[in-house]
Amino acid sequence: MNGIKTENKMSSRDAILSRIKTNKPDLLELPIINVDVFADSRNIVDEFVLKVEVSGGHVIKASTTDDIFNQINTMFPEGKVKYTTLENTAAFNTVDFDTFKSQKALENLDVLVLESDLGVAENGAIWIKDTTLPMRVLPFITKHLIIVINQTQLVPFMHQAYQKIATEDNDFGVFLAGPSKTADIEQSLVIGAQGALSLTLFLR
């Protein structure tokens, strides 16, 4: 189904495209992005930590995976529905992946632990992609989101982030900065709108 065709007339697609062709100005040059003009003297790890916190997230520096999961277990004790996609950490899971096939189970997810391989210092954004995500909705529907990332995976600006992503083929990906939030009621910031209520970042 390619648009709704009206009889005896050009398709809407062709009509729109032909109007653009007639109405557009002469071709203008596409500017080249020179990343050097944006360089500042900020330390990217410090900047990243600062910006994650500005966006409402918590940052914890950690050394090993064991250390991280010990801390998570302290933060979220027994009785919680927990799930991780990190390698060799399946023991942490309180549910099978299959349980998420039921909407109800999805809604009950308390803690989700994911790994990211790209963080952006200038805004605290963390890249989460399809290939490391068993279900797209998980980081949004979970009550608490935990992301593990290595310091070596940080880049200063979005420009470098896209250079890195350019080599990948992702069906879906999201730059995520802090927990879900809104300021739609009188500009008062409220953390926890429709998505995750909290974001904790473990920086290795």
Partner: peptide
């Protein structure tokens, strides 16, 4: 986002390419 609300980026910038 900086122009809109002064945030450095919106919380979610979701890149859709293929349907799940």
């Amino acid at each position: 986002a900086r122009s809109a609300t002064g945030q450095h980026i919106t919380t979610y910038s979701s890149h859709f390419k293929k349907p799940r």
